[in-house]
Design a binder for these strands. Structure first.
Length: 575
DNA sequence: GCCGTTTTCGGCCCGACTGTTTTCAGTCG
């Protein structure tokens, strides 16, 4: 294992530094420099500790002398002097309050200084007691918003996105595997099922000395406290608030323990019912026939003994997969290698970090046959959205890049859907694009009826090919906007407009549930990474996970088509 | 704090919405 803090831990310290500076009213650009560093660290595709050791920190964009030095401090000592200094000035609970959407630095500072509110809990108490309304700038609606934000924060608390969870689980398993007589160690649970986000990690191991494995688990550097412990099981809370469970199984019990801990609970119950029908008894200890354990080497064998084909963990949701398996009707699920193009990507023209040529080269390196450049439109000013003139220029640049690209490049745009459902460019300009992606980025708090009409109006524009991240949700941060999802899908089916599964782990939108509905209703689906950098193309597996949990096959997804067939759809008659 | 074919200082993506005001500050994307 790599020693020292991972990229996320370094990022977290910089994020706290930025937050405290914001509360103190520090220079906004200085704060942004730290926030940029946080963002960069979270998207870096190698360990920052490795880059530091090889004296390559100065190659990271946005890392000047000061941030490089602090990064080295954090790697060496776990902290940096500036952070320690700032931490003394502003209580951690005050910084936590900043996380609540709708509460900014100015308000937090005022609440802290005038009412001595120094935690989210204290804020809730004060809000319920009606003590906030005396503060200038805070009225009744703001109090309601604060309470809603606290409630939402609790719902999302101690959950981590799947991309982070995979890393954390691998770190725990890696640390544990070093010693303790462990011969087998696997990650199970929601991580193995590739849920969107998880609040618990499950690890299953075989060890010749279970007691030692259990005690080493509780003593891991990531562990904050022990929740419960027995001879073969241990539950701990990590510093991040996440729970983690270790099950140590006998070698003969490993397969059934692994399936048991992979779950889901309802899938496991159905498996047990299926076993009972066959006169077998299934527990986490093993599969028993007539009092004796059936030897199992693989999960395939376990399922086979139950008269079932092996069911991939993504399908183990208790959503009809056992019945489908018994009827021989499990779908032939899409895999990463089915994808032939990624048609949602940004460049430096708006808020991406790479050029057209660099993105094209990266997509080609993935073995794709086609890709699209789809930068933001004018309304999204913060992302450097393109004016009509800049888009025309950009289209020319994309056409020029085609010459030497070695991959088919489509000229496109991610066009904002305005509040009223009109698009951010006129039809005359949209007509010049190979692919038009319509996206809602703003105005996401409209009521259900208005929101539904808004998105449907965009879908009905004949030049729109795809609706990106159709519900605008952000995993663990923002709920989907209020929309009649069936009406939206119907409109997409009626007009032949595709719906996206956005593979970025902070979005995963459509969700698996909505994507399954879209498939059942006959909608066309695409899976895209929404890449803002070369590295982002690697996010495709997260979109594939969602598609698999939605029971999608390659034939349900447009960008599995070979280039000629994809173009037959893309350049269909539009009127 | 970062950055530089307008470079060692002086910029740094900005416009809209909301709730609170009565002309605007704070927050967001």
């Amino acid at each position: 294992m790599e020693n020292g803090p991972d990229n996320g831990e370094v990022a977290r310290i910089f994020a706290r530094i930025a937050a405290v500076m914001e509360i103190q009213g520090e220079n906004a650009f200085k704060i942004r420099a730290y926030r940029n560093a946080v963002d960069t660290l979270n998207h870096l595709d190698e360990p920052v500790t490795l880059m530091a050791r090889e004296n390559r920190l100065d190659t990271i964009p946005g890392f000047g002398d000061a941030i490089q030095a602090k990064t080295r401090d954090i790697i060496a000592t776990g902290t940096t002097a500036l952070y320690e200094r700032l931490r003394d000035k502003v209580p951690a609970g005050v910084v936590d309050m900043l996380e609540l959407p709708g509460l900014g630095a100015k308000t937090v500072k005022q609440l802290w200084e005038t009412l001595q509110i120094d935690s989210v809990d204290a804020l809730e108490t004060a809000a319920r007691a009606g003590r906030l309304t005396g503060i200038p700038g805070i009225g009744e609606k703001t109090v309601v918003k604060i309470l809603e934000a606290i409630e939402r924060g609790r719902r999302f608390a101690n959950r981590v996105r799947i991309d982070e969870a995979i890393g954390i689980a691998a770190g725990l398993a890696g640390n544990l595997a070093n010693d303790g007589g462990i011969s087998v160690i696997e990650i199970a649970g929601a991580v193995r099922r590739r849920e969107d986000s998880v609040n618990e990690l499950d690890i299953v191991a075989v060890s010749e000395s279970p007691e030692e494995a259990i005690s080493r688990f509780a003593a891991l550097p990531q562990a904050a406290s022990v929740l419960s412990q027995s001879a073969t099981e241990s539950s701990i809370t990590l510093h991040s608030g996440l729970k983690a469970h270790l099950t140590v199984a006998e070698p003969a019990s490993f397969i059934s323990a692994f399936a048991w801990k992979t779950g889901s609970a309802s899938h496991w119950t159905e498996l047990q019912n299926q076993a009972a029908k066959l006169g077998l008894d299934l527990t986490g200890k093993g599969l028993v026939r007539g009092g004796s354990l059936i030897p199992l080497e693989t999960e395939e064998q376990l399922y086979s003994e139950l008269g079932l084909p092996w069911i991939t963990p993504e399908l183990r949701q208790g959503n009809g997969e056992i019945a489908a398996a018994l009827a021989g009707k499990l779908p032939n699920l899409i895999t990463l290698s089915d994808i032939r193009g990624d048609v949602h990507a940004h460049t430096t023209a708006s808020d991406g970090t790479a050029s057209i040529a660099e993105m094209a080269k990266a997509a080609r390196a993935f073995g794709y046959e086609y890709m699209a450049i789809t930068d933001h439109s004018q309304s999204l000013a913060i992302a450097g959205g393109l004016s009509p003139d800049r888009l025309r220029e950009h289209i020319r640049a994309i056409r020029d890049a085609q010459e030497s690209a070695g991959i088919r490049i489509y000229a496109g745009s991610e066009v904002d859907i305005r509040a009223d459902g009109s698009l951010d460019y006129d039809d005359e300009l949209l007509k010049q694009l190979d692919i038009v992606i319509a996206s809602a980025h703003m105005h996401n708090k409209q009521d259900r009826d208005t929101q539904t009409k808004r998105v449907i109006r965009a879908i009905e524009n004949p030049y729109v090919d795809l609706v990106a991240h159709p519900t605008a949700r952000l995993i663990n941060r923002r709920d989907p906007f209020d929309i009649d999802i069936e009406a939206m899908i119907s409109a997409a089916v009626r007009t032949g407009t595709a719906l996206e599964i956005n593979a970025a782990p902070e979005r995963l939108d459509l969700s698996a549930e909505h994507a399954r509905l879209a498939k059942d209703m006959g909608a066309r689906i695409m899976i895209d990474t929404d890449a803002h950098s070369i590295a982002n193309y690697q996010l495709m597996p997260y979109g594939i996970n969602v598609a698999r949990r939605a029971w999608l096959s390659a034939s349900d997804v447009l960008n599995t088509l070979p280039v000629a067939e994809f173009e037959a759809w893309l350049f269909r008659e539009k009127s």
